[in-house]
Protein backbone atom coordinates (compact mmCIF):
# COMPACT_ATOMS: atom_id res chain seq x y z
CA UNK A 1 0.00 0.00 0.00
CA UNK A 2 1.21 3.45 -0.78
CA UNK A 3 1.86 5.65 2.17
CA UNK A 4 2.11 8.93 0.34
CA UNK A 5 -0.19 11.76 1.24
CA UNK A 6 0.18 14.05 -1.75
CA UNK A 7 -1.83 13.07 -4.81
CA UNK A 8 -1.98 16.45 -6.55
CA UNK A 9 0.47 15.48 -9.28
CA UNK A 10 -1.09 12.07 -10.01
CA UNK A 11 -2.55 11.80 -13.46
CA UNK A 12 -6.32 12.00 -13.30
CA UNK A 13 -9.34 11.76 -15.61
CA UNK A 14 -11.74 14.66 -15.72
CA UNK A 15 -14.91 13.27 -17.28
CA UNK A 16 -17.52 15.86 -18.09
CA UNK A 17 -20.69 13.83 -18.58
CA UNK A 18 -22.53 16.82 -20.02
CA UNK A 19 -20.15 16.73 -22.96
CA UNK A 20 -20.47 12.99 -23.51
CA UNK A 21 -22.36 12.08 -26.65
CA UNK A 22 -22.70 8.41 -25.85
CA UNK A 23 -20.62 7.34 -28.87
CA UNK A 24 -18.91 4.63 -26.78
CA UNK A 25 -15.63 5.07 -28.60
CA UNK A 26 -14.03 4.73 -25.16
CA UNK A 27 -15.48 1.22 -24.81
CA UNK A 28 -14.07 0.19 -28.17
CA UNK A 29 -10.66 1.75 -27.50
CA UNK A 30 -10.51 0.04 -24.12
CA UNK A 31 -11.27 -3.37 -25.65
CA UNK A 32 -8.67 -2.80 -28.34
CA UNK A 33 -5.83 -1.66 -26.11
CA UNK A 34 -6.46 -4.29 -23.46
CA UNK A 35 -7.27 -6.98 -26.04
CA UNK A 36 -10.52 -7.93 -24.34
CA UNK A 37 -12.96 -10.36 -25.89
CA UNK A 38 -16.29 -9.18 -27.19
CA UNK A 39 -19.45 -9.90 -25.25
CA UNK A 40 -22.83 -11.10 -26.34
CA UNK A 41 -24.98 -8.01 -26.53
CA UNK A 42 -28.59 -7.26 -27.30
CA UNK A 43 -30.25 -4.07 -28.40
CA UNK A 44 -32.20 -2.24 -25.71
CA UNK A 45 -31.27 -4.70 -22.98
CA UNK A 46 -30.79 -1.71 -20.72
CA UNK A 47 -31.81 1.91 -20.96
CA UNK A 48 -31.24 3.44 -24.38
CA UNK A 49 -28.33 2.00 -26.31
CA UNK A 50 -26.53 0.89 -23.17
CA UNK A 51 -24.38 -2.16 -23.88
CA UNK A 52 -22.85 -4.60 -22.88
CA UNK A 53 -25.30 -5.60 -20.13
CA UNK A 54 -22.76 -5.25 -17.31
CA UNK A 55 -19.17 -4.53 -16.44
CA UNK A 56 -17.28 -7.82 -16.47
CA UNK A 57 -13.95 -9.56 -16.85
CA UNK A 58 -14.19 -8.55 -20.54
CA UNK A 59 -15.51 -5.03 -20.06
CA UNK A 60 -13.45 -2.55 -18.08
CA UNK A 61 -15.45 0.53 -18.96
CA UNK A 62 -18.98 1.18 -20.07
CA UNK A 63 -21.26 4.10 -20.83
CA UNK A 64 -24.46 3.90 -18.84
CA UNK A 65 -27.46 5.54 -20.46
CA UNK A 66 -30.19 7.40 -18.69
CA UNK A 67 -33.37 8.58 -20.45
CA UNK A 68 -35.18 11.46 -18.86
CA UNK A 69 -37.41 14.36 -19.71
CA UNK A 70 -36.51 18.00 -19.51
CA UNK A 71 -39.04 20.70 -20.42
CA UNK A 72 -41.15 18.06 -22.14
CA UNK A 73 -38.20 16.92 -24.28
CA UNK A 74 -36.61 13.52 -24.19
CA UNK A 75 -33.00 13.76 -23.11
CA UNK A 76 -30.08 11.41 -22.67
CA UNK A 77 -27.62 11.51 -19.82
CA UNK A 78 -24.54 9.34 -19.51
CA UNK A 79 -22.20 7.97 -16.94
CA UNK A 80 -18.85 6.36 -17.74
CA UNK A 81 -18.31 3.40 -15.44
CA UNK A 82 -14.65 2.55 -14.81
CA UNK A 83 -12.11 2.01 -12.05
CA UNK A 84 -11.84 5.20 -10.01
CA UNK A 85 -8.14 4.74 -9.26
CA UNK A 86 -8.59 5.89 -5.66
CA UNK A 87 -5.84 7.80 -3.92
CA UNK A 88 -5.99 5.28 -1.12
CA UNK A 89 -7.56 2.19 -2.69
CA UNK A 90 -9.56 -0.26 -0.60
CA UNK A 91 -8.53 -3.10 -2.92
CA UNK A 92 -4.83 -2.48 -2.25
CA UNK A 93 -5.34 -2.31 1.51
CA UNK A 94 -7.33 -5.54 1.88
CA UNK A 95 -5.34 -7.71 -0.53
CA UNK A 96 -3.42 -10.23 1.61
CA UNK A 97 -0.59 -10.47 -0.91
CA UNK A 98 -0.44 -6.84 -2.01
CA UNK A 99 -1.53 -7.59 -5.57
CA UNK A 100 -2.78 -4.03 -6.06
CA UNK A 101 -0.55 -1.00 -6.19
CA UNK A 102 -1.29 2.69 -6.40
CA UNK A 103 1.41 3.78 -8.81
CA UNK A 104 3.17 7.14 -8.57
CA UNK A 105 1.63 8.04 -11.95
CA UNK A 106 -1.92 7.56 -10.63
CA UNK A 107 -3.32 4.28 -11.98
CA UNK A 108 -4.07 1.48 -9.51
CA UNK A 109 -2.58 -1.62 -11.07
CA UNK A 110 -3.13 -5.33 -10.46
CA UNK A 111 -0.32 -7.88 -10.31
CA UNK A 112 -1.83 -11.14 -11.53
CA UNK A 113 1.25 -13.17 -10.64
CA UNK A 114 0.73 -12.43 -6.94
CA UNK A 115 -3.05 -12.85 -6.73
CA UNK A 116 -4.34 -15.87 -4.80
CA UNK A 117 -7.93 -15.33 -5.90
CA UNK A 118 -9.57 -14.62 -2.54
CA UNK A 119 -11.87 -11.91 -3.98
CA UNK A 120 -11.57 -9.65 -0.94
CA UNK A 121 -10.87 -6.77 -3.36
CA UNK A 122 -14.29 -7.33 -4.93
CA UNK A 123 -15.96 -7.21 -1.52
CA UNK A 124 -13.99 -4.16 -0.44
CA UNK A 125 -14.20 -1.93 -3.53
CA UNK A 126 -16.86 0.71 -2.83
CA UNK A 127 -17.43 1.10 -6.58
CA UNK A 128 -17.74 -2.63 -7.35
CA UNK A 129 -15.00 -2.51 -9.97
CA UNK A 130 -12.84 -5.68 -9.74
CA UNK A 131 -14.41 -8.53 -11.69
CA UNK A 132 -13.58 -12.22 -11.71
CA UNK A 133 -12.97 -14.78 -14.44
CA UNK A 134 -15.86 -16.95 -13.31
CA UNK A 135 -15.65 -19.28 -16.27
CA UNK A 136 -12.13 -20.45 -15.44
CA UNK A 137 -11.11 -23.23 -13.08
CA UNK A 138 -8.33 -21.03 -11.66
CA UNK A 139 -9.69 -17.52 -12.09
CA UNK A 140 -7.96 -14.18 -11.68
CA UNK A 141 -9.29 -10.69 -11.07
CA UNK A 142 -9.74 -8.26 -13.97
CA UNK A 143 -10.14 -4.53 -13.87
CA UNK A 144 -9.33 -1.26 -15.64
CA UNK A 145 -5.58 -0.78 -15.63
CA UNK A 146 -5.75 2.99 -16.07
CA UNK A 147 -3.71 2.08 -19.18
CA UNK A 148 -0.62 2.06 -16.99
CA UNK A 149 1.48 0.69 -19.85
CA UNK A 150 0.63 3.82 -21.89
CA UNK A 151 0.75 6.34 -19.06
CA UNK A 152 4.20 5.09 -18.03
CA UNK A 153 5.44 5.98 -21.52
CA UNK A 154 3.91 9.45 -21.45
CA UNK A 155 0.76 8.65 -23.43
CA UNK A 156 -2.84 9.16 -22.39
CA UNK A 157 -5.08 6.18 -21.59
CA UNK A 158 -6.85 4.63 -24.56
CA UNK A 159 -10.31 5.90 -23.63
CA UNK A 160 -9.07 9.44 -22.97
CA UNK A 161 -7.21 9.45 -26.29
CA UNK A 162 -10.24 8.29 -28.25
CA UNK A 163 -12.90 10.42 -26.59
CA UNK A 164 -13.77 13.35 -28.87
CA UNK A 165 -15.46 15.51 -26.25
CA UNK A 166 -15.70 14.58 -22.61
CA UNK A 167 -12.45 13.23 -21.14
CA UNK A 168 -9.48 15.36 -20.13
CA UNK A 169 -6.39 13.78 -18.65
CA UNK A 170 -3.72 15.48 -16.57
CA UNK A 171 -2.41 16.24 -13.08
CA UNK A 172 -5.11 15.83 -10.48
CA UNK A 173 -4.90 19.34 -9.03
CA UNK A 174 -5.25 20.89 -12.49
CA UNK A 175 -8.18 18.66 -13.32
CA UNK A 176 -9.96 19.67 -10.10
CA UNK A 177 -9.22 23.34 -10.81
CA UNK A 178 -10.61 22.93 -14.32
CA UNK A 179 -13.72 21.21 -12.99
CA UNK A 180 -14.32 23.99 -10.51
CA UNK A 181 -13.76 26.59 -13.20
CA UNK A 182 -16.48 24.99 -15.33
CA UNK A 183 -18.83 24.92 -12.33
CA UNK A 184 -18.41 28.64 -11.77
CA UNK A 185 -18.49 29.54 -15.48
CA UNK A 186 -21.57 27.45 -16.32
CA UNK A 187 -23.53 27.11 -13.09
CA UNK A 188 -26.75 26.16 -14.93
CA UNK A 189 -25.25 23.25 -16.79
CA UNK A 190 -24.03 21.23 -13.81
CA UNK A 191 -24.98 19.80 -10.46
CA UNK A 192 -22.73 21.89 -8.29
CA UNK A 193 -20.53 19.04 -7.12
CA UNK A 194 -17.33 17.37 -8.26
CA UNK A 195 -17.68 13.60 -7.88
CA UNK A 196 -14.33 12.04 -7.06
CA UNK A 197 -12.80 15.03 -5.33
CA UNK A 198 -13.51 13.63 -1.88
CA UNK A 199 -15.35 10.38 -2.60
CA UNK A 200 -13.56 7.44 -0.93
CA UNK A 201 -10.94 9.96 0.18
CA UNK A 202 -10.39 11.25 -3.34
CA UNK A 203 -10.00 9.45 -6.66
CA UNK A 204 -8.07 9.86 -9.88
CA UNK A 205 -11.31 9.92 -11.85
CA UNK A 206 -13.36 13.06 -11.47
CA UNK A 207 -16.85 13.62 -12.85
CA UNK A 208 -19.07 16.55 -13.65
CA UNK A 209 -22.74 15.83 -14.34
CA UNK A 210 -26.00 17.55 -15.05
CA UNK A 211 -28.15 15.07 -13.14
CA UNK A 212 -27.80 14.07 -9.49
CA UNK A 213 -25.16 11.37 -9.14
CA UNK A 214 -27.46 8.69 -7.74
CA UNK A 215 -29.85 9.05 -10.68
CA UNK A 216 -27.03 8.27 -13.08
CA UNK A 217 -25.92 5.19 -11.19
CA UNK A 218 -23.01 6.61 -9.21
CA UNK A 219 -22.54 4.70 -5.98
CA UNK A 220 -23.03 6.59 -2.72
CA UNK A 221 -19.71 6.24 -0.95
CA UNK A 222 -18.03 7.52 2.17
CA UNK A 223 -15.77 10.56 2.01
CA UNK A 224 -13.13 8.90 4.18
CA UNK A 225 -10.33 6.85 2.62
CA UNK A 226 -11.45 3.24 3.06
CA UNK A 227 -8.19 1.68 4.30
CA UNK A 228 -8.59 3.75 7.47
CA UNK A 229 -11.72 1.82 8.43
CA UNK A 230 -9.88 -1.46 8.82
CA UNK A 231 -6.58 0.02 9.90
CA UNK A 232 -8.15 1.61 12.99
CA UNK A 233 -8.72 -1.95 14.22
CA UNK A 234 -5.70 -3.65 12.68
CA UNK A 235 -3.20 -1.24 14.15
CA UNK A 236 -4.19 -2.58 17.57
CA UNK A 237 -3.08 -6.11 16.62
CA UNK A 238 0.41 -6.05 18.18
CA UNK A 239 -0.95 -4.44 21.33
CA UNK A 240 -3.76 -7.01 21.56
CA UNK A 241 -1.29 -9.84 21.10
CA UNK A 242 0.99 -8.55 23.84
CA UNK A 243 -1.87 -7.71 26.19
CA UNK A 244 -3.54 -11.10 25.93
CA UNK A 245 -0.26 -13.00 25.91
CA UNK A 246 1.27 -11.02 28.74
CA UNK A 247 -1.93 -10.83 30.74
CA UNK A 248 -2.53 -14.57 30.58
CA UNK A 249 1.12 -15.27 31.37
CA UNK A 250 0.90 -13.08 34.45
CA UNK A 251 -2.41 -14.60 35.55
CA UNK A 252 -1.10 -18.13 35.15
CA UNK A 253 2.13 -17.30 36.95
CA UNK A 254 0.21 -15.87 39.89
CA UNK A 255 -2.20 -18.81 39.99
CA UNK A 256 0.54 -21.40 39.72
CA UNK A 257 2.51 -19.68 42.42
CA UNK A 258 -0.54 -19.62 44.67
CA UNK A 259 -0.98 -23.33 44.11
CA UNK A 260 2.65 -24.09 44.70
CA UNK A 261 2.74 -22.11 47.95
CA UNK A 262 -0.41 -23.83 49.12
CA UNK A 263 1.10 -27.22 48.34
CA UNK A 264 4.34 -26.32 50.11
CA UNK A 265 2.43 -25.14 53.14
CA UNK A 266 0.47 -28.37 53.22
CA UNK A 267 3.62 -30.41 52.85
CA UNK A 268 5.27 -28.47 55.64
CA UNK A 269 2.25 -29.03 57.84
CA UNK A 270 2.27 -32.69 56.99
CA UNK A 271 5.97 -32.88 57.86
CA UNK A 272 5.36 -31.20 61.20
CA UNK A 273 2.74 -33.69 62.14
CA UNK A 274 4.16 -37.01 60.93
CA UNK A 275 1.95 -38.95 63.29
CA UNK A 276 -1.20 -38.09 61.49
CA UNK A 277 -2.58 -40.06 58.55
CA UNK A 278 0.02 -40.98 55.97
CA UNK A 279 -0.34 -39.81 52.43
CA UNK A 280 -1.20 -42.21 49.62
Amino acid sequence: MSSRKDFTKDKAFLIDMTKCTGCRGCQVACKQWNQLDAEKTEFFSGEGYQNPPAMSEKTFTRIKFRDYQKNGQNEFAFYKEMCMHCNEPACASVCPVGAFEKTAEGPVIYKADRCIGCRFCMIACPFGIPKYEWSKAFPLVKKCTGCYSRVKEGMKPACATTCPTAISYGPRDEMIKEAERRLTDYPDRYIHKVYGKDQAGGTSVIYLTSLPFDELGFKPVTMRPLPGYTWQALRLVPAAFLTVGGGLSAISWINHRKDRLKQEREEAEAAQQPNETKED
Binding site: V94, P96, V97, G98, A99, R114, I116, F120, T230
Partner: peptide, 15 residues
Protein backbone atom coordinates in the same frame (compact mmCIF):
# COMPACT_ATOMS: atom_id res chain seq x y z
CA UNK B 1 -0.47 -19.71 -4.88
CA UNK B 2 -1.86 -19.68 -1.35
CA UNK B 3 1.67 -19.67 0.04
CA UNK B 4 2.13 -16.18 -1.45
CA UNK B 5 0.68 -14.89 1.81
CA UNK B 6 3.98 -15.89 3.41
CA UNK B 7 6.01 -14.25 0.69
CA UNK B 8 4.27 -10.93 -0.01
CA UNK B 9 3.26 -9.48 3.31
CA UNK B 10 0.56 -6.88 3.50
CA UNK B 11 0.02 -6.05 7.18
CA UNK B 12 -2.75 -3.62 6.21
CA UNK B 13 -4.93 -6.53 5.13
CA UNK B 14 -7.19 -8.27 7.65
CA UNK B 15 -7.09 -11.28 5.33
Amino acid sequence: KGWHVLRYWNPHSPM
